[in-house]
Design a protein around this nucleic acid. Structure first.
Lengths: 147, 147
DNA sequence: TCCATTTACATAGCTTGCTATATTATATTG
DNA sequence: CAATATAATATAGCAAGCTATGTAAATGGA
């Protein structure tokens, strides 16, 4: 059997993702944001006070991964955890002033990373790339794990 | 400013890569292969006895990352490290019989993961997705880091 | 009402990525 | 030929992903 890395979707997308992550990390780290905090911040900027469970659902990562990330974000002064008054199991995640102040800057850096990546593509190609990836992701998320 | 995760290339590709990695990992782990070993094995199956430096160049990961992966692969009985006779600094990475025997099975699992991912796309769309990602990767690798 | 179950989150332990730095062997240069 | 520079790999330490399991609070059925 033949198998080439350049035509293996998994291989290529992994490489792609690492390049994007490296770039974004280099841009946001100087502003006190870690790479792993970024996706959580995006959702919290949209809606502050989400619970851990809600964030997990939005982020598509596992609960223990988020718990650890939140601990680092707390340490870095980006969020606080507050026990929900009505349900003692629930932690509401709230942004600090520092995190709120970083919003526009973070958007700008992420936008710049994305722009640099697709600089060689036409508008239509950029759109198609996102659409195709979106369709693959949906299908991976809805069809059985490894059949 | 507005920013939506569903249209952020970095966000989407990260999610995509994790889904692919989870699937492949679940398939190959039962056969004694770790996810991180997989890319290295693909290259060693093509050409056994590569040096660490050569592998690093092919894989696009950092040298310490590969060194750690090779240590685990050695532990798992997939490779051996042999000092090069001519140059005492060089380690030649050689596949074990066990690793050689896993080749076809590994190709089959990776092919299955890729096939499941693109099941909802036409042949032309699959080709286009790979082509577009390839172009973005090349451009990320050739243009300056974060300007 | 009480005990079992479920729910929300935390902890432990591993992998795989990174940067920075140490180590050791070869190459170069004065 | 010794001193220095460069090259190949190793080590240390951290981040962020995972699975498996622990803990504390809420719920629900006998």
């Amino acid at each position: 059997m033949d198998f080439r890395t350049e035509t293996s979707l998994g291989y290529v997308v992994n490489h792609f993702a690492r390049l994007m992550a490296r770039d974004l990390e280099a841009r946001i780290k100087p502003h006190g944001m870690a790479l792993g905090a970024f996706p959580a911040l995006l959702h919290l900027w949209e809606k502050d006070g989400l619970t851990q469970k809600e964030l997990v659902a939005k982020l598509g990562i596992e609960q223990p991964t988020l718990a650890a990330t939140l601990t680092r974000m707390e340490r870095d002064g980006l969020v606080t955890r507050q026990r929900d008054a009505g349900d003692g199991r629930v932690q509401r995640i709230r942004l600090t002033d520092k995190a709120r102040a970083l919003r526009e800057l973070a958007y700008a850096e992420a936008t710049a990373v994305n722009a640099r990546a697709v600089a060689g593509l036409t508008e239509a190609e950029q759109q198609q790339l996102l659409t195709l990836m979106g369709r693959v992701i949906s299908s991976l998320e809805t069809t059985p794990g490894s059949d």
